[in-house]
Design a protein around this nucleic acid. Structure first.
Lengths: 230, 230
DNA sequence: CCGTGAGCGATTGTCAACAATCCTACGATC
DNA sequence: GATCGTAGGATTGTTGACAATCGCTCACGG
């Protein structure tokens, strides 16, 4: 019997892996408030598994920066301060600007342009109906496409962590997105520059986009519910 | 009773944490060859602990990129290819160049200059006696000081992972250091530029220092045991 | 000879129980 | 009232046993 193409090895799934995914989603969607203790026994009961896989899952999220572990005292949802937000943006800037440098050398930037355009279109549609969660998703998908286009496993892996923290800080520090066409235009401009071949202009635009947290924090102060771009 | 200053909360230590540290050291020092399976039961016996803490320790190293886990099949020491090495250098470049930008804004760069000078002195002494392990340690300490001086927890955390991979790829892909004063001079020059206030020159020097892997790989090909700077 | 299925041993994944640690509350003493 | 010591409950850390999975080998049938 010859096996037809398309038949591939099925992914192995462990309980710990599934629990980690479910917990990651729960943390990122704000189900647990900052500083909340994650009770092993209770979570194990909810998931109907033993404490072992829950422990493993939580260790993973600790390494991802979403939870923090204090030995013998428990594991807690991180409290992200404004200083943390600033640091997240610095890390994003490091990763995304390096990605832009790689993208500038790509022989074919059309696939990336397509992905960025799709994200911008999704963002515009979400802005039109004031669906803030979708705006955030599109925004993060835009930047994720940028980093992944660099073709660097390590940049992508680092960005995964930092993007989760971006989403989390958005949950904890910000209360929503402004309904503004400026946000969409900003991304449209960045997409054009990132794929247009003018690296220096793209870097300047990215730096402006991820400008220093003082500007972002000013926005928070100036208008509640007006946090700027993640 | 008033407690005198200097009396601080003692760090809590778990078996899992200790096992993780010992295993990290063993992996980084080349005790386990690339692709080696890490047998839980055997390691648990060696450490005289149960398999639980060994599992937790290994999960941590998996997240750090030193081990790779295949569910139901085991955990293995990663095999780092030349493409991996190139990617590690790209990630280092992203982090270290961002650190340089932050350092350029430091009000006082003297402490960093001191740390870099100490690392260079240690490197020179190690080169003089052809102690390759010490050369590597000094080299990595130099770059670590650079990143830590940026004062960004996330840059430092990301760098920890990438530096461990640097050390590991050094173990797996390279066979030693050349005994060369050029290496020491390179670092001395980088230290001067990093703390001297000329950001552009420092960035150019860092880029040269972490030049594209093709140059490094050429060196491997040109002279066995002559891998260039990590 | 080749392909398939079954069995076995080794190893990983999970479970439940016990041990250890922490925090809080309460009582005793000064 | 402040401090100290103790006990108890809740939770985390670890252990050893059982369950599940995988890879390899061997036997059988076509």
């Amino acid at each position: 019997m010859t096996v037809p193409p398309g038949v591939v090895r099925l992914p192995r799934v462990t309980l710990a892996g599934q629990v980690a995914g479910a917990m990651r989603d729960a943390v990122l969607s704000g189900v647990f408030p900052p500083g909340q203790q994650m009770n092993e026994a209770e979570l194990a009961g909810r998931f109907e598994v033993s404490r072992g896989p829950v422990r493993e899952a939580m260790q993973r999220l600790v390494q991802e920066g979403l939870l923090v572990s204090h030995p013998h005292r428990g594991v807690f949802v991180v409290r992200l301060s404004e200083a943390d937000l600033a640091d997240v943006y610095l890390a994003r800037s490091a990763i995304e600007s390096t990605a832009l440098r790689r993208i500038a050398d790509l022989p074919d930037r059309e696939p990336l342009a397509g992905h960025l355009a799709a994200a911008v279109a999704g963002m515009a549609a979400a802005v039109a109906v004031a669906d803030w969660a979708d705006v955030a998703d599109s925004d993060l998908a835009f930047h994720r496409a940028l980093v992944d286009a660099a073709g660097s496993p390590r940049l992508s892996r680092m960005y995964e962590t930092v993007q989760a923290e971006t989403r989390l800080s958005f949950q904890h520090l910000m209360s929503g997105y402004r309904s503004s066409a400026e946000l969409v235009d900003e991304h449209r401009r960045l997409a054009a520059l990132a794929t247009g071949g003018d690296l220096q202009a793209a870097l300047v635009e990215l730096a402006r986009h991820l400008a220093d947290p003082v500007r972002i924090l000013r926005r928070i102060g100036a208008a509640a519910g007006d946090p700027g771009a993640p």
